[in-house]
């Protein structure tokens, strides 16, 4: 009996069965995530804790390189720092005063919702997409930690991306440099609207695209580009990067150029997730 079954399942037949099964899976997951999510949860339950541990392995290699600074280097650095601290303390006093003034003014303009006021949660990157054209990564916080889809992800430097998938103990983040990313943005100084688009063919230059600026917009090279209030998913006022090589398009109807991201995506390790979403129901 056993032999009979073995004879029936020739490799070609198994291939046909698996192919049909995969086709069914593709069809199902194309339309809904519900049927496959139990499988995903089960696998991630095993793999994510392991991944957290192993994460140290990969990123640890980079870190140990950094540790190799000599003592002398550090000593000279520390005396340098002491001087800096003294001057900064003085500066800080001045800033405190200025800040008080700024706060009052902000209240006047009803703009007190700056980036610093958003509630944030720290997360660690525990895996980076293995697809060479797609810059997305996995963070160690999931729905158990209150993560939700469309939450903005930032780092100390600026906008990193947005959460596209949330699972029990991990979430997937699509970065702004990813080929399928699209962000509505504006020039911080001139308030000219534009869009920021990831593009794989600019991969080597470390830039992404800055598009759809009006022909009369005054965006200059080096201008700070921030997320716009128009965007449906991104909170306003988060720095994305700096404008670069702005030119008029061939059609003469619009201007476009490049954007140098503010975040160093190659050495990203910890990110902050803003737990406030753009569309609040309250």
């Amino acid at each position: 009996m056993n032999n009979k079954i073995k004879n029936f399942f020739t490799p070609a037949k198994i291939l046909a069965i698996i192919s049909i099964f995969c086709a069914a899976l593709i069809a199902v997951s194309f339309f809904s995530d519900k049927l496959v999510s139990p499988l995903r949860e089960a696998v991630s339950f095993v793999v994510i804790p392991l991944q957290r541990g192993v994460n140290g392995l990969g990123i640890g290699v980079v870190k140990s390189e950094e540790k190799r600074k000599t003592i002398e280097e550090l000593q000279s650095y520390s005396s340098e720092l002491e001087e800096k601290v003294a001057s900064l303390e003085a500066q800080n006093e001045q800033l405190k005063k200025d800040n008080k003034e700024l706060d009052d003014l902000k209240k006047l303009y009803d703009m007190d919702q700056s980036l610093a006021d958003y509630p944030k949660v720290g997360a660690t990157i525990i895996g980076i997409s293995s697809q060479n054209w797609n810059e997305s990564f996995i963070i160690d916080k999931g729905s158990q930690d209150g993560m939700e889809e469309d939450m903005n992800v930032i780092s100390a430097d600026g906008l990193v991306g947005i959460i596209t998938e949330v699972h029990g103990n991990y979430s997937k983040v699509m970065t702004v440099v990813s080929d399928n990313s699209y962000v509505t943005a504006m020039d911080e100084a001139t308030k000219d609207q534009c869009t920021v688009k990831g593009d794989i063919s600019l991969f080597d230059k470390g830039k992404i695209r800055l598009e759809r600026m009006k022909v009369d917009s005054k965006v200059k090279e080096g201008d700070r580009i921030v997320t716009s209030g128009i965007s449906s998913k991104y909170l306003p006022g988060i720095l994305i990067g700096y404008a670069n090589e702005i030119k008029e398009d061939e059609t003469g109807m619009s201007r476009s150029g490049y954007l140098v991201p503010a975040v160093d995506f190659d050495h990203l390790q910890n990110v902050l997730v803003i737990t406030k979403k753009k569309q609040t129901t309250d």
């Binding site: 698996i18 192919s19 899976l25 199902v28 997951s29 194309f30 496959v36 696998v43 697809q131």
Partner: peptide, 19 residues
């Protein structure tokens, strides 16, 4: 495994790798 964490379409990579 690859599909679960990296692609949006579960089953695509599985099919390719099976082939």
């Amino acid at each position: 495994m690859y599909d679960l964490f990296f692609t949006d379409l579960l089953g695509f990579t599985a099919l390719m790798f099976t082939l």
